[in-house]
């Protein structure tokens, strides 16, 4: 009951944030929001539906995706530091995005662009798995090394490509919702939905898997299979996010720690809560990024780092991260 109440209040916060974000911005709306529903003409209507809506909805959707991905990643790699950024997924998705744009195979924000990001994210995660000597420190170091290689390759492609839409390395590394529009959202949303479904299906097995590989095997959950499934879920969640808005730091790392503090370690429960918490944090960050220093916009990834990293340190100091190291 307490958890249901918490769930509903978080949901209410999202609705309020959604409305507030549609109303707040550089342009002061002359018309009440309610009267703009169904309207498509005029500065107020286009500002709300064409400019703010995709950003706010995108922040909610991508925040939820990154939060869920964080839970899955930490669960499957049984490591509290296994964030999509650290285990090669994010840089894989970045390289996948840039590769098709730089070679002219697809435009920024196209479906091919998203598919390539998903594919590369998955391959990068598999590569890290394949090369890592163990599941502990060696795994993280391998992840960091692979990420560095992939990011460097992406940087080289950016430097030698004159193709429009290839963006800059800082766009890809720090993330920004500014380029998000309704068309891009329509393309990435189905991928992320699939990622949610897949993550939800894998979540109960992750609880069993958390007791160790042999233990998991004895209880009827094949480790190899669940890892593959989790990586597919992660690629479906991270790939589209990166291809549309670049890498957003710390969210995937921070959200699961907050969620475990609130509702305990169960992956299934953590999943729905981390979707809400992830959405709230990213919506707040986006609101701050576009309103704090008007008319300048602060890259989103910088804000999430500035908020996320200290929060993470505090959480870890509280010894409430709820992980026990066995490596």
């Amino acid at each position: 009951m307490k958890k249901l109440a918490l769930y509903l209040s978080l949901l209410a916060v999202i609705v309020l944030l959604f409305i507030a974000s549609l109303r707040i911005g550089i342009i002061h709306l002359q018309t009440p929001l309610w009267d703009l529903i169904g309207k498509h003409d005029g500065i107020d209507a286009t500002t709300v539906w064409d400019v703010r809506f995709p950003r706010v909805f995108g922040a909610a959707l991508l925040g939820a995706a990154l939060g869920v991905a964080g839970v899955i990643a930490q669960g499957i790699f049984r490591n509290p530091l296994a964030e999509p950024t650290l285990i090669g997924l994010t840089s894989g998705a970045t390289l996948g995005s840039i590769a098709v744009i730089a070679t002219g195979a697809a435009a920024f924000g196209s479906r091919t662009n998203v598919e390539s990001a998903v594919l590369f994210a998955g391959l990068a995660a598999l590569l890290v798995q394949l090369l890592a000597p163990n599941k502990g420190l060696g795994f993280l170091i391998t992840g960091i090394a692979i990420s560095a290689i992939l990011t460097a390759l992406a940087g080289v492609m950016i430097s030698i490509s004159a193709k429009p839409g290839v963006q800059s390395l800082s766009f890809w590394n720090f993330g920004s919702l500014a380029m998000l529009n309704n068309q891009t959202l329509k393309i990435i949303a189905p991928f992320i939905e699939l990622g949610f479904i897949s993550a939800f299906m894998v979540s109960r097995k992750l609880d069993i898997y958390s007791l160790g590989e042999n233990s998991s095997h004895y209880m009827g959950v094949k480790p190899k299979q669940i890892r593959l499934w989790a990586i597919i879920s992660l690629a479906l969640l991270i790939g589209p996010a990166v291809s549309a808005v670049g890498a957003i730091a710390f969210l995937g790392l921070l959200v699961p720690h907050i969620v475990r503090l609130l509702v305990g370690p169960s992956h299934r429960r953590a999943l729905s809560f981390s979707a809400l918490i992830g959405a709230i944090i990213l919506m707040l960050a986006d609101l701050a990024s576009r309103t704090l220093f008007q008319p300048h916009e602060i890259p989103l990834g910088l804000l999430t780092s500035l908020i996320g990293a200290p929060a993470l340190i505090i959480l870890l100091r509280l010894r409430s991260a709820q992980w026990v190291s066995h490596d």
Partner: peptide, 9 residues
């Protein structure tokens, strides 16, 4: 030996 890494009850 089973690995209890997460704080389940």
């Amino acid at each position: 030996r089973r690995i209890f890494t997460l704080a389940y009850s």
